[in-house]
Design a protein around this nucleic acid. Structure first.
Length: 582
DNA sequence: GCCGTTTTCGGCCCGACTGTTTTCAGTCG
């Protein structure tokens, strides 16, 4: 989507990258030379990667020295930065009916088929596409058949089921934007699903405490997107496309009780309410009969109910209240407990930053160690490493560590092949510090086949961590349908850890499966799966999901310090060399 | 369109799968 921009601000690298990316997608859709389309896409990547250095390149006219930017792209970028327009993009947009870009995003409908349904059936919206599929009109198109039509139909149904929700990282961004729009004079913080750290949010809610409630409401109604006043002290707005947002404004003395009520969930609030039926917790504060009850902060609210403070991540249902009452509230893992992270990528495969840059970023974050695990040889699409390249990487990591800082572990993200084997022979795997094994392809199999494949993978003595186990992509792909309990049990027996992949679109394993790990005593490894230095920050999202599942420090593998993790890995490797491979 | 050169053209990460076709195009990762 084109990013709206104020003319006063010069385009950022992200603005330029978005424009070039759109050019690429439109070219694909129009059936232009695929290599030309790819050149624009690569150019977009190159520009995005420049980040803050982009402005300096523009200033110094040195963009042509950036790999992937030739004469034409430099000229296009020049035009865009000077005028805020891109003639090429405008022309391409004119040739593609609105909505067709969206058609091409439906799984099973690539650029060719999207163009085909548009040209032959005059379809340009998802609604029209679904209607045509229901009427069996797609069947008559060349290259379409019963199964393609069915696949499109179910993809559209799945999409409708998730509409109106957004990922947690986007909800966080919406909270930050709304808070910034209000200004620092009226600080607003997240409540509701966002504060409970729900992986998907259908409602983005903020709370602001202010002496002059009406003034905040007036300001919010003026500055928040698509805002309208919705009752006393409440402003509704559009937090993200199709996602409802609400700003609640209360007097400072009512803020603590309102924060508890608005953070919810309703089941949690009901359980609290049951402990003191004479009280009434509301979005505007607490009342006893007609009398207002005030508190200094949330801890005081819980204390008045005879309870310790309950972390928001545990408020998804009413169960935590009983745990709190009986003193059995778990001590949850915290971001600061993580001593490092395994599973991260570098420029050698599909990452954006070098091992050295990743190491420096990890050092700045206070991590003791960082695992580097680029893709394995079968992952062509991600420029997976042949055995020789993998061996050469070891030297690169050693030299990156010369100046101190976070210790680098040398690993690999090995594809799990169709039969459950790893992607390198034992003599290659044995030289690595650790192995993350992940499925990246051929998800379409029977549940039994997938289960067998994953069980074989976790039983491989070189598999230390099973990466993004279900392969789900939030709002776009369901997790693979296999017997999770059986795979977790096999992993427990083999002593292999499960990944909690912290990428906001994955958050895989999910909370329910993480709870199963805890019950089994199976270690969970919280990994950023970072493809850039910035993505290391996603570890915080992973920690929030571990907390929702009630995981403590001891449940998480990478809370071990360097020496402890080394011992854990060595013990596994010792077991590995003592076994024959399955 | 970019890049590298066997330097002004030719190749561009590519293999597997699926569903359609009846030998292969399109999609995906």
């Amino acid at each position: 989507m084109p990013v709206p921009r104020s003319p006063a601000r010069p385009p950022s690298s992200a603005d330029v990258a978005d424009a070039l990316e759109e050019v690429s997608r439109l070219m694909e859709l129009l059936g232009e030379n695929p290599f030309k389309a790819r050149a624009y896409d690569r150019g977009a990547h190159a520009v995005r990667h420049l980040g803050d250095a982009f402005a300096a390149h523009v200033e110094a006219h040195t963009l042509a020295s950036v790999e992937g930017l030739g004469k034409s792209l430099v000229a296009a970028i020049d035009e865009f930065t000077r005028t805020g327009q891109l003639t090429l993009l405008t022309q391409l947009r004119r040739q593609v009916p609105p909505g067709v870009m969206e058609l091409a995003s439906v799984p099973g409908l690539g650029p060719r088929k999207a163009r085909q349904v548009c040209a032959e059936l005059s379809i340009s919206t998802l609604g029209e596409l679904e209607y045509a599929a229901r009427e069996n009109r797609l069947l008559h198109l060349k290259g379409f058949g019963e199964k393609t039509q069915l696949r499109i139909l179910s993809a559209l149904q799945a999409r409708r089921a998730v509409s109106g929700r957004c990922r947690l990282d986007r909800a966080d961004a919406a909270v930050a934007l709304a808070a910034a729009a209000l200004g620092s004079g009226w600080p607003a913080t997240a409540v509701g699903q966002v504060r409970r750290r729900a992986e998907l949010c259908s409602h983005v809610e903020l709370l602001c405490a202010a002496r002059d409630v009406d003034a905040v409401v007036v300001r919010a109604a003026a500055v928040l997107p698509a805002a309208r006043v919705d009752g006393p002290g409440a402003v509704e707005f559009e937090a993200a496309p199709g996602v409802r947002g609400t700003l609640h404004v209360v007097l400072p003395e009512d803020a603590a009780a309102a924060q508890v009520f608005l953070t919810g969930s309703s089941a949690h609030v009901d359980a609290l309410q049951a402990r003191e039926p004479a009280w009434q917790l509301t979005a505007h504060g607490a009342r006893r009969a007609a009398e207002r009850v005030t508190f200094t902060d949330e801890t005081a609210v819980y204390a008045a109910l005879g309870l310790p403070w309950i972390p928001p991540e545990l408020r998804e249902d009413g169960d935590a209240v009983e745990l709190a009452r009986t003193g059995r509230l778990p001590r949850l893992v915290e971001l600061g407990d993580l001593r490092g992270a395994l599973h991260n990528h570098t420029t050698l495969s599909d990452g954006r930053d070098t091992a050295r840059a990743m190491q420096q970023a990890a050092t700045r974050m206070g991590l003791e160690y960082l695992g580097i695990s680029d893709h394995s040889q079968s992952a062509f699409y991600a420029r997976g490493l042949k055995a020789e390249a993998l061996r050469a990487q070891r030297d690169e990591l050693h030299s990156a560590m010369r100046d101190g800082g976070a210790r680098l572990w040398h690993g690999v993200e090995s594809d799990i092949l169709q039969d459950g084997a790893l992607d390198y022979p034992p003599e290659v795997l044995r030289e690595l510090d650790f192995v993350v094994a992940s499925v990246h392809s051929r998800y379409q199999a029977t549940a039994q086949q997938l289960t067998d494949r994953l069980i074989r993978a976790v039983r491989n003595p070189y598999t230390d961590v099973l990466g993004h186990p279900t392969g789900r992509l939030l709002l776009s792909r369901e997790g693979a349908a296999f017997d999770v309990a059986a795979v977790l049990a096999a992993a427990r027996e083999a002593g292999c850890a499960m990944e909690l992949n912290a990428q906001p679109q994955r958050l895989d394993l999910c909370v329910e499966h993480l709870r199963m790990c805890k019950r089994l005593g199976l270690k969970v490894c919280i990994n950023a799966d970072a493809h850039s230095t910035a993505e290391l920050e996603t570890l915080a999202l992973g920690v929030s999901q571990a907390r929702r599942a009630g995981l403590g420090r001891d449940d998480v593998l990478n809370t071990l310090d360097h020496a402890e993790l080394q011992a854990w890995l060595r013990a596994r490797r010792a077991g590995a060399t003592g076994h024959t491979l399955p």
